[in-house]
């Protein structure tokens, strides 16, 4: 009985991922809204926000687009895409200071 109830009330993995995406989005917004991305810590927090975005992108690729569990190169196609602009943006923002 307990096992059945646990199964019926268990949250779907996609729902957990959705909630995580919402939390990361709210943290990103809060950092921008309360003007925390200014002064000496602007670069570090900007790159943190970018890191959140890359994590969110990978979650979308894995759990929403269905790449998690694939064998072969398609498994990493979204990760590769995220890393290319992610790296270039990091370089540009770091050089800009």
């Amino acid at each position: 009985m307990n096992a059945v109830m646990t199964t019926q009330t268990a949250m779907r993995p996609c729902t957990r991922v959705y909630l995580l995406l919402v939390v990361l989005t709210l943290v990103t917004f809060a950092l921008g809204h309360f003007d925390l991305l200014s002064g000496s810590r602007a670069l570090v927090l900007s790159l943190l926000v970018l890191g959140f975005a890359l994590i969110k992108g990978q979650l979308i690729g894995d759990f929403f687009m269905g790449l998690k569990g694939l064998r072969g190169p398609w498994r990493f196609v979204i990760l590769l895409w995220l890393l290319i602009p992610g790296t270039l943006i990091t370089i540009a923002f770091t050089l800009a200071g």
């Binding site: 990103t28 200014s38 975005a53 969110k56 979308i60 687009m65």
Partner: peptide, 17 residues
């Protein structure tokens, strides 16, 4: 994919300084 692109666009254009 449309969602994925916005997830990068949002912090890049609106938040990162």
């Amino acid at each position: 994919m449309v969602d994925l692109v916005w997830l990068i666009l949002f912090p890049l254009v609106y938040v990162m300084r």
